[in-house]
Design a binder for these strands. Structure first.
Lengths: 165, 165
DNA sequence: TTCCGTGCAAATGATTTGCAGGACT
DNA sequence: AGTCCTGCAAATCATTTGCACGGAA
C-alpha cells in the first residue's frame, strides 16, 4: 500500500497489456501518489509541467486512463465536463459530501446505506456493479462564514444537478 | 399536476423573471410534458424538428434551462457530457438504477437511505441541499439475454465512473 | 416602441485522436 | 527491427454565446 507497491502494480498491469513503463508514466504515477486530495487532469498537468522537463497534456490524459484501468485511481464525475481523480485502494470504499458553496469534498462511508443499496438493486432484479452517491450541502465552515468562500470553481454557481429531496 | 397546471407554472415563472411565453417555449413545454422517460436535449430537438416548423437547438437548450429553473424538469448527469432531463413533480423524489449493459434507467426510492443520508450529512456538519445516487448494475433482461442489447449508447463501453464497492 | 427571443454560426472547454519522429526491448 | 510512445495540433461533442433581425407586451 506504499508507493513501491503501487509502482509494482502499475508495472505489472502495463506488462499484461504489452505496454511499457516510460519515464513520463513513472513521473505521473509518482506525482499522483503524493496527492492526497481529489485532482483534475489539468491540475496534475500543471503540477508536472513545472518540474519534470515537461509532459504533454495528452500523455497526462492517456496515463490517467491507464492508472484507472490498473485500479490505482478512481475517477469521479462531480462536476459536468470535469473529471476528478483520487488514489484508490488506500482508503476503503467511500462516497462524497460536496459543499455547494466552496466545493470542498468530504468522504463518507455508511455501511447501512451500502447494504440498502444492494438490497434495492436486488429487489429490482439488478446485479449491482458499482454506484455513485453524492450528497450536496453547505459545509460547516461555509455555514459559519456565510458561504462566500470559493476553493475551486464555485464561481459559476452550478445549480446542483439534482432536485432537493 | 396536469399539463394545464404546468403551463401555468411556467407562465408564472417566466413572468416573475420578466420573460415571455413564446410559441417556441410553449411548444417545447408541451412536448416535454408528453415524454415519459428521460430524454436529452438532442432527442428533444430531433423530436421537435420534425413537426413544429423548426425550433433551433439553441432555443431548446435555453428553454430546458428555464424549465429546470422553473422546477418543471429535473436534470441528471448520468453519462459524462450528456445531460438527461425528466419531468419533475409528477413522481415523488427518486434515484436511479442504471443498467451497465443496455443503459436502461429504473427509478427507485428508499426511505431508509434518504434518512441515512440526512444523518450522514448532519454528522459531518453539512446542511444537506440535494443528492445524487446512482446504482449501476446489470438489469434482469440483460442478465437473461447475455447483455449484448443496447438501448442507448452503451456502445462505447463507458467504464462505470466508480470503483466497485 | 422597446426589450426579449430566436436562429445561425462561431466559440467553448475538457477530453481525444491522427500523425511523424523517438525510444525501449 | 519492431513496437510502443510522446508531443503537437487538429478534431470531437455537448453545450453556450454573440449578433442582428423579428416579435410580443
Amino acid at each position: 500500500m506504499n508507493g513501491g507497491d503501487e509502482a509494482d502494480t502499475f508495472q505489472r498491469f502495463l506488462r499484461t497489456q504489452g505496454l511499457k513503463l516510460t519515464s513520463q508514466r513513472g513521473a505521473i504515477l509518482e506525482r499522483v501518489l503524493t496527492i492526497r486530495k481529489h485532482f483534475s487532469a489539468e491540475e496534475l498537468f500543471e503540477s508536472l509541467r513545472a518540474e519534470t522537463q515537461g509532459i504533454s497534456k495528452a500523455t497526462v490524459y492517456r496515463t490517467l486512463a491507464l492508472l484507472v484501468q490498473a485500479g490505482l485511481l478512481d475517477e469521479h464525475d462531480f462536476e459536468r465536463g470535469h473529471k476528478l481523480y483520487e488514489r484508490a485502494g488506500n482508503h476503503a470504499h467511500h462516497d462524497h459530501l460536496i459543499c455547494v458553496s466552496c466545493s470542498r469534498i468530504v468522504e463518507f462511508h455508511n455501511d447501512e446505506i451500502e447494504t440498502l443499496q444492494e438490497k434495492v438493486a436486488r429487489e429490482h432484479g439488478f446485479e449491482m456493479v458499482s454506484h455513485t452517491h453524492q450528497i450536496f450541502g453547505v459545509c460547516p465552515r461555509c455555514k459559519r462564514e456565510g458561504g462566500a468562500r470559493t476553493r475551486r470553481a464555485a464561481s459559476r454557481p452550478r445549480a446542483p444537478t439534482h432536485p432537493a429531496p
